[in-house]
Each structure stands twice: as structure tokens, then as C-alpha cells.
Design a protein around this nucleic acid. Structure first.
Length: 424
RNA sequence: GGAGAGUUGGCCGAGCGGCUGAAGGCGCUCCCCUGCUAAGGGAGUAUGGGCUUUAACUCCCAUCGAGGGUUCGAACCCCUCACUCUCCGCCA
């Protein structure tokens, strides 16, 4: 949610900024609605004031033992008039809310122009691409050859875009998750959390998935309305919903492993092969709640924390700055990390690190008390994948394969694999 | 699942139809006194919104779990829902 004051004070600025995103915003439409709101709200409040002062007068007259009937006659019609005004105001507020909650965040000045992922800007590359003196396999061939990955079984048990991991490979994924959690806690100062995987609509509104992106979610129950989390970002960021955080406790840094559930509506036909795009996958999420002045630096730090995992795993990757058209709804600026997948001879997204500034915080009413003003002010929120475990598993399989189709265990994972150093 | 009790400001807690945006206490901030491991006195201390060209003040509106109702007027009465606690049952 953007600041309504910004719309009232500098509508041209907002319109121009939104245009960078190719977001169709109609300022005339907005102004007209806002003018109605102002008129009706003022009128409503005047009526409320009239009612309050009349009621007070009646109370005082009664206390003195005066005849209150003339006063009662006076306010006879006030009730209906007030009710009508309040109803109208509610409708207008509802319209405005719907409009405002559908408007994306404003982009940071450093975000490049562009329409699609083709316009994203490469910031850096890390690691040498591996060379193989044999024909490389992708993770599907590597995994199914040894019955480590079973897509047909996933389809039988549930349906398409689900998979079963067997034996050593399941353990390797668990090792990756443990390694990521331990690293973020011990080296990057994050606090581990465990959170619900079903969330209510308020939580999803807070982080921006609702009302606009309900199709991307799995709804698990109707009454109460509960949804499977699409990312741990939702429950973890909602830790600070309706909270005024003590300044001395900032920044808050959380790390959380969770499964993620996405309906992948609109992704039919994309990445159908393998486990790149599943309805259910494991991810380690890092979240930061910071003072506004710290969020730009925190964004760089948080991205570095995600990069650290790739570096320790010795997986080659590149860092992309997303262009205007590819930056998510709630984000003001996003870096994607793309890992090298030899099986595809391509870099593929493995982490997305975003600074939401106060966009989520305003929806969440997540605030901190600024000692300088003594007033509650909105915090800034950030998050990133650190990393998507399912895709990291794929990357390890493909980068660490040998001519026999075996998968060697990255050095940093050895302590988590119970002495195993190769899956064969 | 059954029975009962609750939900008020940063925290505890009073209030049960008008003078209550809310007593009292704790905490916090400032001032005074005293003087040293402790104490006394005074003042201040909720949030969101509107109006205003902007800002501050004043003013106005809303908020005592949420939503609705009764009433000239609701923290207080009625209804619905959510959550918390206690006891019983069940359970990884």
C-alpha cells in the first residue's frame, strides 16, 4: 500500500512513477473519487458532531431536571441523515481501499527501465563454469536413473508438478536446508523461527499476496479462510503486524525454513520438465525488519547473505538487478540470484531478494517508535530466498555430477551427510 | 468435543447508559528536593483520521477483541463471530 498523502499532495509524481511499471493508473478517476470522499467525510463528521453535542445537551438538561422533549424533537431526523452519510462514506472508502490495494509499490530510482526479464541488468558473476569431458545430464536424468527422483510417483499420489525424493537425495535436500539455517544463524546474525504453514487472509493482505494474487494460492479451508503459504515471507513478516517495535530491537533478522505451495496459475507449459517449477518446494527464507534509513544497505547485506550460500557450495551464479517490468508488485527493488545449471546450459533463478521499503509495513501497520520524534513510524521490510532448497538441490546434482552419473557431495555439506561423500 | 470465565491505554487494573478517551497503580520522560546504592514531591505520557496551501497549535471525528443492533446518547444493554484462560474428554 502506498501513502495516501503522496496521492493527495503530488498526484503527478505518483502517476509518472507508476508509468515506469506500465501500471495503468487513471489520476482523473482517482481525483474524482477522492473529492467525493472528502465531501462525504466532512459532511459525516459534521453530522456526528451535531449528534454528539445534542446528546450531551440532553444529558445535562436531564441532570438538571429540565424538560428534554424539545431537544429530542430537534435531533429527530439526525439519525437517518447520519446513517445515510455513513453508509455512503463506507462505500467510497471501500472503493478507495480496493483501488489503493491494487496499486504496486513505487520503484527505487536505481531500477532500470524495461518490460520483461530480458531487460534485467547483470550486476556481477561469481565462479567458473564447470567443464565436463563427458555429456552432461540434467537433474531429471541423473535423478531418475538411480530412482532418486520419482515424478510419476508424485503424480500418482497427488498430481502433476509434485515429486517424490528418495533416500540419499532426500537427505541431501535436508542437509542443504540445515546448512543454510546454520550459516545464516551463526555467521549472518539471523534468528531461526518456526511458523504456521497455513495463514489467514489478513496475513496475506499484509505482505501483498491478497487481494490481487489469490489465484496463485492454494486455499485450504473456506471458513475460516486459510491458505497454504506460498513462501515463509508471509508468516514471518506478519510477526510484526500491528506491532510497535522498540528502536533498540531493530533490526530484526529472521531465518525460516518452510515448504512453499504455489498453484502456478498462468505457468502452464513453462518448465514442465523436472523439479524447477513445482506446486510444493522447500525454501529457506531470510527476512529483515529495519529502520527506514537502513533499508538500502540492509538490501545489499541480505543479498550478500544469500550469495554466501552459493559461494560456500561453490555453485557459479550471477546477480541480476530486475528491471521495472519484472519487479514484483510489492517490491521497490529486487536482485535475483541465478545459479548455473549445466543440464540446461543456463542461469536459473534460485533467489530473489527484495526491499519493500514501507509498502508492506503500511499494510501490516508494522512500526517502530522513533526516539527523535517519539512517534510510531513505519518500518521497512526486506526478504530474500537464502536459498530455494529444491532448486539448490538441482544445482548441486547437475554441477557435481561425474561421468558415471554419480553426485558428489559439496565439502560444506559433508558434516550433514553422515560420512557420505558421493551418491551413487 | 463438553462446561465455565474472560478480552479496556506500553503493562496491571477500575468502570456496567450521559460529566469517561477512560479512575488508580506500574513503567517511561522532564523538573524540584535530598544525597548515595535507596527514597520523596510536581508535571507530562494512546492510536488513526479529517479540516487547514504546507507545518504546528487549537478544533472536529473515530477507536475500550471484531462486526451488527437498541437508544437522543453505548466501554457499559442485546445478537453474531474471533481469540485467551480453567476444568473434563480426546490426541502426535
Amino acid at each position: 500500500m502506498l501513502d495516501v498523502q503522496l496521492f493527495r499532495n503530488d498526484l503527478d509524481f505518483v502517476t509518472t512513477q507508476l508509468k515506469k511499471r506500465n501500471f495503468a493508473f487513471n489520476p482523473e478517476n482517482y481525483s474524482e473519487l477522492e473529492a467525493r470522499r472528502k465531501a462525504v467525510q466532512t459532511k459525516t463528521q459534521e453530522l456526528q458532531n451535531a449528534r454528539n453535542s445534542s446528546s450531551k445537551a440532553i444529558g445535562q438538561a436531564k441532570a438538571k431536571g429540565d424538560d428534554v422533549q424539545p431537544l429530542l424533537d430537534n435531533v429527530a431526523n439526525l439519525g437517518d441523515e447520519l446513517k445515510a452519510a455513513e453508509t455512503e462514506l463506507n462505500e467510497i472508502q471501500g472503493e478507495l481501499d480496493a483501488l489503493m490495494s491494487g496499486i504496486p509499490n513505487l520503484l527505487d530510482a536505481s531500477v532500470p527501465e524495461g518490460k520483461s526479464e530480458d531487460d534485467n541488468v547483470e550486476i556481477s558473476r561469481w565462479g567458473d563454469l564447470p567443464t565436463f569431458d563427458f555429456e552432461v545430464k540434467d537433474h531429471v536424468d541423473l535423478g531418475t536413473a538411480r530412482n532418486l527422483l520419482d515424478f510419476e510417483l508424485g503424480a500418482k499420489i497427488t498430481g502433476s508438478r509434485f515429486v517424490v525424493l528418495n533416500g540419499k537425495l532426500a537427505r541431501l535436500q535436508r542437509a542443504l536446508i540445515q546448512f543454510m539455517l546454520d550459516t545464516h544463524c551463526a555467521e549472518n546474525g539471523y534468528q531461526e523461527t518456526y511458523v504456521p504453514y497455513l495463514v489467514n487472509a489478513d496475513s496475506l493482505r499484509g505482505t501483498g499476496q491478497l487481494p490481487k494474487f489469490e489465484d496463485d494460492l492454494f486455499k485450504a479451508s473456506e471458513n475460516p479462510a486459510l491458505y497454504l503459504i506460498p513462501t515463509a515471507e508471509v508468516p514471518v513478516t506478519n510477526i510484526v503486524r500491528d506491532v510497535i517495535v522498540d528502536a533498540k530491537n531493530l533490526p530484526l533478522k529472521f531465518v525460516c525454513h518452510s515448504p512453499c505451495f504455489r498453484s502456478e496459475a498462468g505457468a502452464y507449459g513453462r518448465d514442465v520438465r523436472g523439479m524447477i517449477r513445482q506446486h510444493q518446494f522447500e525454501k529457506v527464507e531470510i527476512v529483515q525488519i529495519v529502520k527506514p534509513e537502513d533499508s538500502a544497505q540492509a538490501h545489499e547485506d541480505l543479498t550478500n547473505h544469500a550469495e554466501m550460500i552459493l559461494q560456500k557450495l561453490k555453485l557459479p551464479y550471477r546477480k541480476m538487478l530486475l528491471c521495472a517490468g519484472d519487479t514484483g508488485f510489492s517490491s521497490s527493488k529486487t536482485y535475483d540470484l541465478e545459479v548455473w545449471l549445466p543440464g540446461q546450459s543456463a542461469y536459473r533463478e534460485i533467489s530473489s531478494c527484495s526491499n519493500f521499503r514501507d509498502f508492506q509495513a503500511r499494510r501490516l501497520q508494522a512500526r517502530w517508535r522513533n526516539p527523535e520524534t517519539g512517534k510510531p513510524e513505519l518500518v521497512h521490510t526486506l526478504n530474500g530466498s537464502g536459498l530455494a532448497a529444491g532448486r539448490t538441490l538441482i544445482a548441486v546434482m547437475e554441477n557435481y555430477q561425474d561421468a558415471e552419473g554419480r553426485i558428489h557431495i559439496p565439502e560444506v555439506l559433508l558434516p550433514y551427510m553422515g560420512g557420505l561423500n558421493v551418491i551413487e
